[in-house]
Design a binder for these strands. Structure first.
Lengths: 217, 217
DNA sequence: GGGCTACTATGACCGCTGTCATAGCGGAGG
DNA sequence: CCTCCGCTATGACAGCGGTCATAGTAGCCC
């Protein structure tokens, strides 16, 4: 987890994301970020002339790319790629963290949305982009497991929604039961969408290949 | 929506909840709450000697009771009580608000969790209690629609998780598509749990126990 | 060396916020 | 009238946090 030996700039973005996870955007101070990143405070205004907003936006973007990138890894690590297996792996990431490191952190994108959606337009856009990137990655992975393309986006949205909500419940309750519940209840539904689906969406007669790769904004 | 002609104390709790919905806990100032509630600032320290923490905790508690109370109403308003109908009604509450009033507000309990889960123990407990009350209400309603009791709690957790997550996505994207997606995708799963004493997915031809049961334990 | 550029170091400022102290009001009761 | 008490009104205060200004350092090319 430790942020490699990258430059101070990257360390600050990483540390910002970590602190945002724990305390939210507003409660995270720039001085604290600098200390956490073992970076000089003066570098903040040098690397982030846009101020806190720029740092937060980059932290959110980093989190989105990180989450999207891990999806492919989860899928590759499965002995047999199934939608429920993918979702279980995503959930497991959180149950493992909570059981070993405590319930200190949540999702930084969720924190940014709650704290900045109405007050900082650019951060809201960064959060939207992060969710979109993550959703696209999940949808792509679902397609690889055999889910029809026109259904994968919807299911990916459902998976991420359920996961985000369960993270909230888990942190509030200090119990992973919500996470395990959504993984268990959603698994069969996800697997049932593989190959054999036709019901949802009346008359999905024509298959538009652009539907899978579109990043609806 | 307007907070009736209650006393100033209740108006302040209500206004606090509204502002927390929009800006989060940390960004919501007490002076702002007083103005919004058309209440004297001096009353804050009179009615809430515990300070901001007490006000926030009560706002979270109020939100939890409010959400729990509405569940029964949703159920009663359905022409035919079904799990999917209940969930659709819960989701509709949010899509209606977002389409008519904009995406300014989220769930105050989620905001409290993100902002205070690690920093203010009492608020975290208030959020936990709010989620529990809400979940219990939903589980009770599910039982009334015919869902087996041992399954209702899990499904209620799933419904609330998916709803909370979809609210986050909707606010970030300024689009209700995530809300409509979870309502549509989850509906059949919820209805399938009604009174058919066997759990779906188990014992069926397409059983995939290795993947479905992965996160148990 | 002299200058130029990238980065670091610090201190100051200003606005905001939660909290507290103190004082004012207005009605009820004696 | 006076006193008590629930409530209101305001100003002060201390702390913090983002931002800016200014100065210092290190390397590198001429």
């Amino acid at each position: 987890m430790a942020g490699a030996e990258r430059g101070p700039r990257e360390r600050m973005v990483f540390s910002a994301a970590q602190l945002i996870r724990r305390d939210g955007v507003v409660s995270t101070g720039l001085r604290e970020v600098a200390v956490e990143a073992a970076a000089p405070r003066g570098s903040l205004q040098h690397y982030f002339p846009g101020g806190k907003t720029q740092l937060v936006d980059e932290a959110v973007g980093w989190a989105g790319r990180y989450a999207a990138h891990r999806v492919a890894r989860y899928l590759a690590a499965l002995p047999e790629p199934t939608p429920s297996g993918l979702f279980a792996a995503m959930v497991k990431q959180w149950t493992d963290e909570y059981e070993t490191a405590g319930f200190a952190g949540g999702c930084p994108v969720a924190a940014a949305t709650v704290d900045c959606a109405e007050s900082v337009p650019s951060t809201r856009e960064a959060a939207s982009a992060a969710f979109t990137a993550w959703t696209s990655a999940v949808a792509g992975a679902l397609v690889e497991t055999g889910v029809p393309e026109d259904r994968a986006g919807q299911l990916a949205t459902l998976m991420i929604s359920a996961l985000e909500g369960a993270i909230l419940l888990a942190r509030a309750e200090r119990d992973v039961r919500a996470l395990t519940a959504v993984a268990r209840e959603l698994g069969p539904l996800l697997d049932a969408a593989v190959r054999t689906d036709d019901r949802p969406g009346r008359g999905a007669a024509h298959t538009d290949p652009a539907a899978a790769g579109r990043t609806d904004g």
